[in-house]
């Protein structure tokens, strides 16, 4: 497959370099929201929306920063843009689906400090993707985050019924599960071939 094609970039972000399981980004919401499937899925959707908006804005801002030769302000600009994108998505969700808004609760504003989003914006800048490639990348990254979250939630719901040792309370056993999922995702490395 052509490494610059949109399909390849999407697959790469979605499976091969999965943000959560291969690059360790966005672990806080991954551990925090993955206890139940009914919150994990909408959370994943919200992250996909923020990713798309943030990716487009980051692309535009980077052009401006390079034009004015002030790349050292990149980090500050990106984080400000992400905070506003989160606010935007929050208002949109509140307007169109109050039910979903209530379900997500505190986790919605916390997307601002989700390192998956800033990481995605930074990687897209470092790899010098064009605007369509950036879109494919952010869509893949968001979908990958959602996939990891939903898989994990499904596993943890089954884990409720299992009998785990006392010391391995929720966090330790969740990390062990993440390790196994991550091992499974290593198998996708061959896709890049």
């Amino acid at each position: 497959m052509d490494p610059d094609s949109m399909a390849f970039i999407f697959l790469q972000a979605f499976l091969i370099n999965n943000l959560v399981l291969a690059l360790f980004l966005g672990l806080c919401p991954f551990v925090g929201v993955s206890a139940k499937l009914e919150t994990a899925f909408p959370m994943g959707l919200a992250v996909v929306c923020v990713m798309l908006v943030a990716s487009l804005c980051a692309f535009g801002i980077n052009i401006l920063l390079v034009y004015f030769n002030i790349e050292y302000l990149r980090l500050i600009c990106y984080i400000a843009v992400i905070a506003s994108a989160v606010q935007l998505v929050e208002m949109t969700i509140k307007k169109f689906s109050p039910k979903l808004f209530r379900m997500l609760g505190i986790y919605l504003p916390l997307i601002t400090t989700n390192c998956a989003i800033l990481g995605m914006a930074l990687f897209q800048t470092f790899d010098e993707y064009s605007i369509t490639q950036s879109l494919a990348y952010s869509l893949g990254a968001g979908a990958g985050f959602m996939l990891a979250l939903v898989l994990m939630a499904g596993l943890r719901e089954r884990l409720e019924l299992a009998n785990v040792p006392d010391a391995c309370t929720s966090a330790a056993i969740a990390m062990m599960l993440a390790g196994m999922l991550s091992m499974a995702f290593m198998g996708f490395a061959g896709l890049g071939g």
Partner: peptide, 11 residues
């Protein structure tokens, strides 16, 4: 590799 990080942290 990435899985090792998760496993060490879990332990």
């Amino acid at each position: 590799l990435p899985p090792g990080g998760f496993i060490v942290l879990s332990l």
